[in-house]
Amino acid sequence: MNNEEPGLALSTLHCQPSADSRGFTLLETLAGFLILTLIVTTSLGIFYDRQRRLRAANEMILAWQALANETEVERRLSFADNRLAPGLTRTFISDTGIVAPLDSIGTTVAVQKVNDDMKLVRMSIRWNKGARLATLTIIRTNTGGGPLW
């Protein structure tokens, strides 16, 4: 009499590994992960680059608001005003509260004499420890005090 149960024999037979049902080797798994990692890191890189560019654009909008405000004020200083003395370097006259969200902000206004009747006023904002810079230069001419602008 056969003591083996037919079901058990069948179950044992099914558990035997065949040539095409083996697991993955470590090398195959690592190769799979390498491909997956490349795809994910590339996607992350694209996403991060987009965010970085948006951030840079937003920061630049803030910086240019401050530059535009300073331009309005600098244009209305008298040509002979002490604050427009050639060679002078100073900070902005206008309020720079708009650029407060930027990191490590520094503002400079540098006045350069071209000739007796012309000066260049260069306004700069640096942030991110000097890594980012926005600059605007305006020309001031001696109108003799006339209300040309």
Partner: peptide
Amino acid sequence: GKLAIDQIIQPRA
């Protein structure tokens, strides 16, 4: 409550 816009605008001559 964060300052988003700050513009000084002067009428031209």
